[in-house]
Amino acid sequence: MTDLAPISPFDASPSAVARIARRAPVDWTGIAFLTGLAVVILLPLVVTAVWAFAEVWRFPAIVPQRMGLGYWQETLSRHDVWQALWLSLSITTTVTVISAAICFPAAYAFARLDFPGRNMLFLAFLSVQAFPKFGLIIATATIFLTLHLIGTFWGVVLIQLVGTLLYMIWIPVSAFQGVDRRLEEAARDVGASPMRVFWSITLPQALPTLFAAILITFVNTFYETDAAWLIGLPNVRTMPMVMISFINNALEVQYGAVLFVFLWVPSFLLMLAARRVMGADAFAKGFGG
């Protein structure tokens, strides 16, 4: 394999892609995957979506006995749903941006630099996810109470920011770890400055993983409720808080189904966008090596 090393992994040559494409004009594997996923992923979602329009649907009917837009009207005419959506997007964006700003440099340090307590500190981030929240409620609440952050936008941002630390450090560390060091050394040998090495060798290789971390963080933060309940109530009500209070222990599945379908479209677009940066080679080409 050593003889292959000099080939930069990110300049997946268009010819290579074309060669694969030529070999398989019809993407049978893709169609097989698509069919499988359609059944496994889409079927439950479609059933949920149909519920959003169903007013009465009882076994053994294949389609609902009575359909209507009643639940849609009732849900979407609520002022708080729109307010919550906007609030959620603001909080989530703020958290993700701050988290990336403080965590990515830290992840780089953990992956590349040597400093006292490195392994210990790195391992310690585990406690963000591994220790159940209920044991920490009183202590956390006390801290936020003394700072007068209960029920505020920034209080929720702070508590959710802490929740992102693990993903935003551990995932990028594996990215910086996986960067081919020989390429960096080669670039440095031919006289590239450290900054140029970072921008044109290290970052492009790590970027797909960094995007994965950002995407995971964004979505997880958007749907996070445990911390948001504790710190946000009674003033801050995010979208999933509204959703869960509709869904949980509600006799009608419809409210939840409506809100869920309502969030479908933006999610699907986000997914397709993610493909551009994370998926095959579109991204690498964009950066041009």
Partner: peptide, 26 residues
């Protein structure tokens, strides 16, 4: 509205913390 009940538990715990911190439990 604080459904599910775990959300209400969190708020009650917060009130207990506020009691010893002499803060407003909201």
């Amino acid at each position: 509205i604080a459904r599910p009940s775990a959300a209400l538990d969190a708020v009650a715990q917060r009130a207990l913390a506020a009691l010893s911190a002499k803060a407003d439990p909201q």
